[in-house]
Nucleic acid binder design. Structure first.
Lengths: 214, 214
DNA sequence: TAGATTGTTAATCGATTAACAATC
DNA sequence: TAGATTGTTAATCGATTAACAATC
């Protein structure tokens, strides 16, 4: 309530930053040097006040009538998200969804790289999209050896907890959970659930009850 | 402010219903007849007040010390989400992510079925997971013929708008957009964006700034 | 009955929106 | 200068949390 830039940063805000980053990087690629929050807001159909306020959280100051210095604001957002340093991850469950993530090219824009995968099924061993797939019983050991802090779960729901346990035994600190399972983890491990059903629920509820998009 | 059950229903609430549904269905399968909000809350690590309040929105009344009648509450939630009737969908872009969705078995629990897919690449024609893949130039025509109201976009970002346009030309009313593209659609078409980058942003921001999971 | 659980009203909290002065 | 845009403070809104009476 007194320090430099207090005011908590909520998930809603954090989720908008990748949008800003994408637009701002595009503008930088086009050779522009400054970006006004107003333009970014228009492109993303957001309220300019929101954009202004969010961008101010990066610490970068804009200049009226001109906007924010592009190079600065881009790298400030990358720092803010932790996307400046490359984060390495492992993935467990090289099924359909797992393979899709292994081959997803967008991750490199997000300072994010999957360095190893695991699967219980011997048929899925070898390499997928250039990433080696190891047996599931090597998770803890490999995670420790590679010193990876982030794990992706794309295993069947029933396997989620034991596989998460193995990852944590290897020293994983964050889990991106694509299964519907409710994980139990110690307080210092961060879990982010990615819930397809939730998105579908919002869509079908709106479709049914005739609401408009936001 | 006066009618039966007013009080707007927000996205946050809607997103919780699939969680309830999963837990409640499991309990029903185990042969139980009643479910207390308290138990559901515990299983999902939610505040019991939230669960109580959400469930009351279905219109089903619980009885103190006993809970909610399972069969009733399950079908009320299904109705609420529009998952009682089967919703048919088409998918455009049968790449890695598209194929993963085509093969995703969980959709049938969600009253949701993909009946056709499209891809510009002739190599991807035929059937994937039993679902026929047609040329991309047949989108509008096929959507109209099958009378489908929901479309899934897993095409490259650059294709998103024209493909969405084709879907809408065929009469699509809701679009589940897995691309980072910002779609422009008429007011009566509902778009739900599924944003992997947003989830990753929340996770990496927490990992970086050492916050705890909620 | 006693105790657990529901349903509902009120209080708190956080995020969005509005308003406006500062500034280039 | 005039006008657009930033930065910030205040007002509004919605969601969560707390409190408690009702009831089985």
């Amino acid at each position: 309530m007194s320090g430099a830039q207090k005011a908590e940063i909520g998930d809603r805000m954090v989720k908008r930053f990748p949008l800003y980053l994408r637009v701002l990087r595009e503008m930088a690629e086009r050779g522009e040097k400054f970006a006004s929050g107003a333009v970014v807001a228009k492109v993303l159909s957001l309220d300019p006040i929101v954009v202004r306020k969010d961008l101010s959280k990066t610490g970068v100051r804009g200049t009226p009538r001109v906007g924010f210095p592009l190079a600065e604001i881009v790298s400030a957002i990358e720092r803010f998200l932790g996307w400046n340093a490359r984060t390495e991850a492992v993935l467990a469950g090289a099924g359909r969804l797992g393979s899709a993530l292994l081959g997803y090219p967008g991750f490199q824009n997000q300072g994010f790289k999957i360095v190893a995968a695991f699967d219980a099924n011997p048929k899925r061993r070898g390499k997928i999209a250039g990433i080696p797939v190891y047996p599931a019983d090597q998770i803890a050991e490999t995670v420790r050896k590679l010193n990876v802090s982030l794990g992706i779960l794309t295993v069947p729901a029933g396997q989620a907890q034991p596989v998460a346990d193995a990852m944590m035994a290897g020293g994983i600190r964050g889990i991106w959970n694509f299964t519907p399972a409710q994980l139990s983890v110690p307080a210092d491990v961060i879990v982010k659930r990615e819930d397809l059903a939730a998105g579908l629920a919002v869509l079908s509820h709106r479709l049914k009850h005739g609401e408009k998009s936001p």
